[in-house]
Write a protein that binds this DNA or RNA. Structure first.
Length: 277
DNA sequence: AACGGCACCTGGTCGC
DNA sequence: TGCGACCAGGTGCCGT
């Protein structure tokens, strides 16, 4: 489910209800996740106060008095902020109950996500320290991107989805950014011209910023802190539109599989490197 | 070092 | 109606 815009939408949605609040209780109904939820998490968090809620890559960081709660939504996770504890539904795995009566509820059917706790500086954490720059920050520049592209031979789509290169770009937005940039997903980073690198850097930022404005993309089951969907799906130009016509040139969109993931592109607007070189 | 592939898990959809 | 195959928004880790 969640790429960067969905995580950011969640962050901004839950933050106001949490900041400044003491944690009154933590209920863990299921601890089997990608990494198990630490047995002592409730004891560790109880009584601590939430200082701020930030995001690094697709990780949500709930800064509390003595440490940081690290939450990843995986492929199917969502967080809701409820005014009071309604009965837990299926896959409602964790509740963080605040002193003001709000409950932060973590639901994750596939359990690809995680809820962890650290007292170390977040930049040192094993899940964080290898990450590349934030795409919406000043660190993600055409010069940086060009430097990273040098000598690389994997498909450009795989490359921009590599969190060591730039974080936050998942399958949906990778497809969209490449389309906007007129770059075939199978091109190699080292083959990109300066103009193409400029365009792709710009469009990765632009597509993510626009999706955040729309509250993220809801395909099936993403919902924000209020349980409501995002509205960017209706603005998608290629993702999920295989066989439909290109919005620019009317050519039918084509699907290929890269890294075992669906990649949709316009054969006219994003010429194949094999036939055009 | 760079790259491809797999694994983790549930649930929805599609074809027979 | 039932059942198996396949697909889904992520990403760390493994082998080559």
């Amino acid at each position: 489910m969640p790429e960067l815009p969905e995580v950011e939408t969640t962050r901004s949605g839950i933050s106001p209800g949490l900041v400044g609040q003491p944690i009154r209780e933590v209920i863990v109904r299921e601890h089997r996740f990608r990494w198990p939820i630490p047995d002592d998490l409730p004891a560790l968090l109880n009584g601590q106060q939430v200082v701020s809620v930030t995001r690094r890559s697709k990780y949500l960081l709930i800064h509390v008095t003595k440490g940081i709660v690290i939450i990843h939504l995986g492929m199917s996770g969502s967080l809701r902020l409820l005014k009071s504890a309604s009965p837990a539904a299926k896959h409602d795995h964790v509740d963080i109950v605040m002193a003001n009566g709000y409950v932060l509820r973590f639901n994750d059917p596939r359990r690809f996500g995680c809820v962890l706790y650290t007292t170390d500086p977040i930049a040192h954490h094993p899940l964080i320290r290898h990450l590349g720059p934030e795409p919406l920050s000043d660190d993600f520049t055409p010069d940086y991107f060009a430097q990273r592209c040098r000598l690389r031979k994997l498909p450009i789509k795989n490359f921009i989805m590599d969190a060591k290169v730039v974080v936050g770009v998942g399958n949906i937005y990778a497809n969209e950014a490449l389309f906007l940039s007129g770059i075939h997903p199978n091109r190699t980073p080292s083959s990109l011209t300066k103009r193409e690198i400029d365009a792709l850097t710009h469009n990765i930022r632009a597509i993510l910023a626009q999706a955040i404005k729309r509250g993220g993309t809801t395909l099936k089951d993403f919902s924000n802190a209020e349980g409501k969907p995002g509205y960017f799906a209706q603005e998608l130009l290629v993702y999920g539109r295989k066989g439909m016509t290109c919005t620019v040139c009317k050519t039918p969109l084509v699907e290929v599989r890269l890294q075992n993931r669906s990649s949709v592109f316009c054969p006219q607007c994003q010429p194949d490197p094999q036939t055009t070189s």
